[in-house]
């Protein structure tokens, strides 16, 4: 009985998430005609019409490009900043280490809404408002707390003694990090970086406040949503969903217990 309830609940939850997503897929890969029929067919008719329409719509290519550039900058910046922080958390016992860890997380409790307006003002002064850099900086700030903890978990999983062995056999401290730690942490670091990329790619609120003429894809889709024809909406939704899905599929195993068991 318990099992039935458990699995039933799980199926219900999965359905709650998956059914709408499935209809997005159906809509995105159907011809415009069948998209407008009601009820929507349970299977797509595998047409690229909607997708083609979306990608070639005015503004989409630029927005997509902005999104990708912002996401990549975010990924690289986040990793560059998170790696030293995560490494410190994983390797060194320093006064206030746990307080630091908590602070890192606590920054997430700070509402983006409150932060965005003053940031927009600063970005205007610095001349990076409405640019990929401005958005990327914001997204880096948003991604950092999680990524720092993820990266700390990754580094904690690399044995200290191989780092020491590298130092014994000719490496400096940094050389040991580069030659012994990074190669073994690479899959985890890649996962953490991808996480930042996706967070940026799907982030809409900060991006909509910080851009005007150069929106990222989610912002562009959102602003046009009410006027856009159905195929555009379906295809846009799929474009925003797909990377996250692929990512979860690829690194599911590494996401479990991020910052958890490996990092005390």
């Amino acid at each position: 009985m318990r099992r039935v309830l458990g699995y039933g609940g799980a199926a219900l939850l999965a359905g709650w998430i998956l059914v709408p997503i499935w209809f997005v897929v159906v809509g995105a890969f159907s011809t415009a005609d069948s998209v407008y029929t009601y009820p929507l067919a349970p299977w797509p008719d595998w047409s690229l019409e909607s997708m083609r329409f979306f990608v070639t719509s005015a503004g989409v290519p630029q927005a997509l490009l902005s999104s990708v550039v912002v996401a990549l900058i975010t990924g690289v910046l986040t990793l560059l900043l998170a790696a030293p922080a995560g490494y410190a958390l994983a390797r060194f016992v320093f006064p206030g280490a746990s307080a630091y860890r908590l602070t890192v997380l606590a920054t997430r409790a700070f509402p983006v809404v409150v932060l965005s307006i003053p940031l927009a003002v600063f970005f205007l002064q610095w001349g990076i408002y409405d640019s990929v850099w401005g958005v990327a900086f914001m997204h880096t700030a948003l991604a950092l707390p999680f990524v720092v903890l993820m990266v700390a978990g990754v580094f904690a999983g690399v044995p200290v003694d191989i780092e020491e062995a590298a130092q014994i056999f000719g490496c400096s401290r940094f050389g040991a990090f580069r030659r012994a730690v990074v190669p073994n942490a690479a899959p985890g670091l890649a996962a953490a970086g991808t996480f930042a990329v996706l967070l940026s790619y799907n982030e809409v609120f900060a991006a909509s406040i910080l851009t005007l003429q150069e929106p990222t894809l989610p912002v562009f889709v959102l602003t046009g949503l009410t006027q856009a024809p159905l195929p555009f909406r379906y295809a846009g939704a799929l474009f925003l969903l797909a990377p996250a899905f692929l990512f979860i599929l690829l690194i599911r195993r590494r996401l479990v217990g991020v910052g958890g068991p490996t990092l005390r």
Partner: peptide
């Protein structure tokens, strides 16, 4: 001196071979 300048080698308890 740092370890690399000491002209010595070490065998670790946990092997510490490079997995990669």
């Amino acid at each position: 001196l740092p370890p690399r300048r000491r002209d010595l080698a070490m065998v670790f308890q946990g092997y510490a071979v490079f997995p990669h």
